[in-house]
Design a protein around this nucleic acid. Structure first.
Lengths: 195, 195
DNA sequence: CCTACCGATCGGTAGG
DNA sequence: CCTACCGATCGGTAGG
């Protein structure tokens, strides 16, 4: 039995690339298979030789994102860095995902509700799991008196939301360099706005 | 000539209330006029005696939100509070909007792209205008050496994104009281995570 | 506010 | 990968 193919067919990859772009631009529901097929350069019916259905494509987007974060927090847990370094790495990893995989991030943020069961539950569980593990890291920092005595879960939510600022930055970056923006954001979250 | 009616018809209000709930639950595109009509208790065709079309309802959601923030920042500008107080008030106003008008906020965040011109441009201009005015307040704080020397626009984006944490808190608040969550979030943004 | 209906478009399938 | 086509559903209108 041959090993499971690592490389997907180039055509399927192309369909995925065009799909995530269209999902981003118009939203999952407003993207038609005919439009997608047009972008790929084939007829709508031909898409079904590569995918089982439209939702396949949404699943690939959402679980690509979910897996990236789950993998990353596992790495953090296995590291023996101090808590502060772990937190900064997590923030920067989120920022790099927003920078390098913006369309996937945006679509998974906005359109995850269109996943059907059981994928919807899997996705939400993965997210909850991630939040819990992240909160444990924060908690360790609070117990070590490195961090303020705030609710760990609130810290997690604040960080996970704050990194979405890249969304607005992408739409209208006022000549701010990406690196400057990232450093400022880390600074604000870690040591606050106040001087 | 009678003064412009202040109170809309109760039926139209009911349609709006049901619409924003459905838009939140299923998304704008996935909400059908038939489903909405069912919630209201009339036939789909009858909706059109109260509204011109589906997009009317999305516009009301999005511009309710836009107007609330524009009005609020005007109040801040006219106040003679110090910058720190203004910023805290702005953060808390965003949080209160998330708490009290969650569905409208969520829908305007996610579905504004489905506005058609010229409303789409008006909406985006309003947002850009708000960001610019908020950035000016931050800038004043930096010049007064009250705030760190970071890019004002990055601060604005960070704050405007961070307040979306209420979204996740609403979905899975781990017995955190709203007031505690709000105070922690303000603390993190203003004085940082570090002790 | 309803019945009846419109054209358009949707995701997807049959069969080659 | 295509042609041809399916049933379902969409937002909206005519006319009363």
């Amino acid at each position: 039995m041959p090993a499971k193919a690592i490389v997907q067919s180039p055509k399927k990859l192309m369909i995925y690339e065009k799909a995530k772009k269209l999902f981003y631009q118009k939203g999952y529901n407003a993207t038609s298979m005919r439009h997608l097929a047009g972008e790929v350069g084939i007829e709508a019916a031909s898409l079904y030789n590569h995918i089982k259905g439209k939702e396949d494509l949404l699943r690939e987007v959402c679980f690509f994102v979910a897996k990236a974060f789950t993998d990353h927090i596992s790495k953090m847990e296995k590291s023996n860095w101090n808590v502060a370094a772990q937190v900064e790495h997590i923030i920067r990893f989120h920022l790099s995902m927003m920078m390098d995989h913006f369309e996937e991030m945006y679509v998974s943020y906005r359109d995850w509700k269109h996943l059907s069961e059981p994928y919807l539950s899997t996705f939400l569980n993965s997210r909850r799991n991630y939040e819990g593990r992240f909160a444990k890291i924060i908690e360790a920092g609070i117990e070590a008196k490195e961090f303020k005595n705030v609710h760990p879960y609130t810290v997690v939510l604040t960080i996970l939301s704050a990194v979405r600022s890249v969304e607005f930055w992408k739409r209208n970056n006022r000549n701010i360099k990406a690196a400057d923006m990232e450093n400022d954001l880390v600074k604000i979250l870690i040591s606050g706005l106040n001087k």
